[in-house]
Simulated scan of single mutants.
Amino acid sequence: MTAGPAGLVVAHLSDLHLGAHDPEAAESVIADVAAARPTLTVVTGDCTMRARTGEFRQARGLLDRLPGRRLVVLGNHDVPLISVQRLVAPYRRYRRLAEPDLEPVVRLPGLAAFGLPTAPAWRWKSGRVSRRQCDAVGTVLGAAPVDDIRLLAVHHPPSATGLATMVGRRHLLTALAAARVDLVLAGHTHVPAAGPVRLPGSAHRPIEVVAGTATSRRLRGVGRSWTVIRVDAELITIEERHQDASGWCTGPVRRWERSR
């Protein structure tokens, strides 16, 4: 089986938390992402800290400077916390100032990408996907050309277990298998991670990539980071980019064979 275009590059950022961010990191990460020359830049939610209008404007300014085509999904911090706005129009600011489509689709040569919101307004922190959303994974990604990379972007990691288990997870994993999704991009934890996801009843193994926080001051035992994903005919390569005192540098690099 052949693959899509050689040298496909995806830049994956998450949990920017504009409003509780480090300005130097927010400025410097733009150039670091640009240096990777991504085909697609994906931001998996929590663009803001408290979904305030000023924070969304800051986020919009950063998003507009990121290179390549962009796909942005909603995070739980992109919904107003405690306000009438959360009840009557929870996504209005996000849709007006960050991303108008709650379920964005990007199609490029060799790549089909789909974003799902996993932070409904009536849940405070943990994730949820509906049966309709799971069906949409099949409709959008399952219909992609056979050799395309199929990418799903969500905020909450589907692999999470325990109290962090996503409601609807079983149906989502079934949809990932049926659509033969190659990459699942997520955030939320602020801790970078990557690895294959076991799908019930299927030998297919998508790679789940969790990006750390690229710009937030809310660190959880690790520094700021973002992730570069490179795909060729045989391999998916995941490179973490970490910020240290001298700037952005290469962190762990992992490789997996593409699941057929």
Rank of each mutant, 00 (worst) to 15 (best):
I30H: 02
L71K: 05
L40S: 08
M49Y: 09
A25G: 09
D22G: 14
T39R: 00
R57K: 08
T53F: 00
G61V: 03
R65K: 15
T44N: 08
A31R: 10
A26K: 05
A51D: 07
H21I: 13
T39P: 02
E27K: 04
V43Q: 01
P38D: 02
T53G: 06
A34H: 10
T53Y: 06
E24Y: 06
D64A: 15
D22I: 12
T41D: 09
V29F: 04
H21P: 04
P67W: 14
D64V: 09
D46G: 07
L63S: 00
A59C: 08
E27A: 15
T44H: 05
A26M: 04
G68F: 07
R50Y: 01
V73P: 02
R69N: 01
R69G: 05
T41E: 08
A59M: 06
P38Y: 09
A26I: 08
E55Y: 11
E24F: 10
R69C: 04
P38H: 12
E55S: 05
D32R: 14
A36V: 13
A20M: 03
A34W: 03
P23M: 12
T53H: 12
F56C: 09
F56M: 13
G68N: 00
R70P: 05
A31P: 01
P67I: 14
E55L: 08
D64W: 04
L66G: 01
L63V: 07
F56L: 12
D64P: 01
T39Y: 01
P67C: 15
V33H: 03
G68R: 06
R65G: 06
L63R: 01
A34L: 15
A26S: 11
A26G: 13
S28N: 06
G54A: 13
P23S: 13
R69A: 13
P38L: 13
E55G: 09
R70N: 08
T53P: 05
R70C: 11
V29R: 09
A34S: 15
T48G: 09
R70H: 00
R37K: 15
P38A: 09
L71N: 07
A36M: 08
R52Y: 05
A34E: 15
T39E: 01
D46P: 02
F56S: 06
L66V: 05
A35S: 14
T53S: 06
L40I: 03
A51N: 11
D32L: 06
R50C: 08
V73N: 12
D64I: 06
I30G: 12
A34T: 13
R57M: 11
G54M: 07
S28K: 02
E24N: 06
L63M: 10
V73S: 01
D22Q: 15
P38F: 10
T48E: 05
T41V: 03
E24V: 15
A20N: 15
T48S: 15
T41A: 14
